[in-house]
């Protein structure tokens, strides 16, 4: 019995909690991709950099707040800096839309052109970020590190294995939940949200209904900025902030969006968790779990791991390929938001 509990604790500690955390971060990113795809109809390669930019602004504000002694311990100070991060990021995305995307939109350019344009934007933002904050690692987490320490858990339960819950993990999951709920409420119950769905569903008919496309586009960018800033900041709090890493997030984020069905918000969220859990499940070393569950004399000389931890990045790609081969429209057959 204790063996089973120990095994479960192991799984919870190394698979479930990290999976939920990482999945939430991916889901926020994928939601941004899906919104842009649904409303503006292109794949936004600048999503990773938008997340990095939002996180960077939040970090700068956090440092400012920390230096004047503001703190909301046990929560990280960054949480109160996020609104400013969102505002600045929204201003940037809107400015970029006005200067860059709008021209191509008015000419109804091919989606591939938009894609290339978004890559240009990605470089611009990447350079800007590195210019402002540098390419290095930035630490901005403060507050209490653990909500539940492994040691405490062991003492509490008397199990061999510890279960720990980091503040950043709890915060990530909670905030993602709030944001996602708020977003669905917005899309399904407000006039503006519905007009976004209508525009995404049928652009011409939306125009015929008097929906102002400029407004829809503007709202979309603001929401994308908000999602990106929150996602980017949570990722930075949980792991660490490094501009380079956000570019690497692009693949899992797109994989999440496509797995779920591009353009479908429910799909984006599901996709985020699918990718996150697949990564962890395939790179998790099952040796200890099996030792607990197997017969007492079981001996294992390998880690029992499907893929080396280094190959995490390949997982999202493999899943992407499987989805493209089997069901290119994704699990939730998306197209509209």
């Amino acid at each position: 019995m204790t063996d089973i509990l120990n095994a479960l604790t192991l799984l919870a500690n190394f698979l479930i909690i990290p999976g939920l955390t990482y999945g939430s971060q991916l889901a926020l990113g994928a939601l941004g991709v899906t919104l842009v795809y649904g409303v503006l109809r292109f794949s936004n390669f600048a999503q990773g950099e938008t997340m990095a930019f939002g996180a960077m602004i939040t970090i700068l504000v956090t440092w400012g707040l920390q230096s004047i002694g503001v703190s909301i311990k046990p929560l990280p100070t960054a949480l109160i800096a996020i609104p400013i991060g969102i505002t600045v990021t929204a201003i940037l995305t809107l400015a970029i839309d006005k200067v860059v995307y709008r021209y191509h939109r008015e000419r109804r350019a091919n989606p591939v052109i938009f894609l290339i344009v978004s890559i240009g934007v990605m470089f611009f933002m990447g350079g800007l970020i590195r210019f402002i904050i540098g390419p290095g690692d930035q630490i901005f987490f403060d507050g209490t590190r653990f909500i539940l320490k492994a040691q405490e858990f062991k003492e509490m339960t008397g199990l061999n294995e510890g279960l720990s819950l980091k503040m950043t993990q709890a915060v990530t999951i909670a905030i993602a939940l709030i944001i996602v709920t708020a977003m669905f409420w917005f899309l399904n119950h407000t006039r503006t949200g519905k007009s976004m769905r209508a525009y995404s569903d049928n652009e011409d008919l939306a125009l015929l209904s008097g929906i102002d496309p400029d407004r829809v586009v503007m709202v979309t960018w603001i929401i994308v900025a908000a999602l990106a800033t929150v996602g980017g900041t949570l990722y930075g709090l949980d792991k660490s902030f490094k501009p380079f890493v956000y570019m690497q997030l692009l693949l899992p984020i797109f994989a999440s969006a496509i797995v779920g069905g591009v353009g479908n918000p429910v799909g984006a969220i599901a996709g985020g968790y699918v990718i996150a859990f697949s990564e962890l499940i395939l790179t998790f070393a099952y040796k200890k779990v099996l030792l607990y569950l197997g017969p007492d004399n079981l001996e294992l000389d390998s880690l029992i791991q499907f893929l080396g931890t280094d190959y995490k990045i390949a997982v999202s790609f493999i899943i992407l390929v499987i989805v493209l081969v089997i069901k290119p429209t994704g699990l939730f057959s998306g197209k509209t938001i």
Binding site: G120, M122, F123, F124, G126, G127
Partner: peptide
């Protein structure tokens, strides 16, 4: 990093 920005 200007290079990155310039290419963009």
């Amino acid at each position: 990093h200007m290079r990155l920005m310039t290419v963009g």
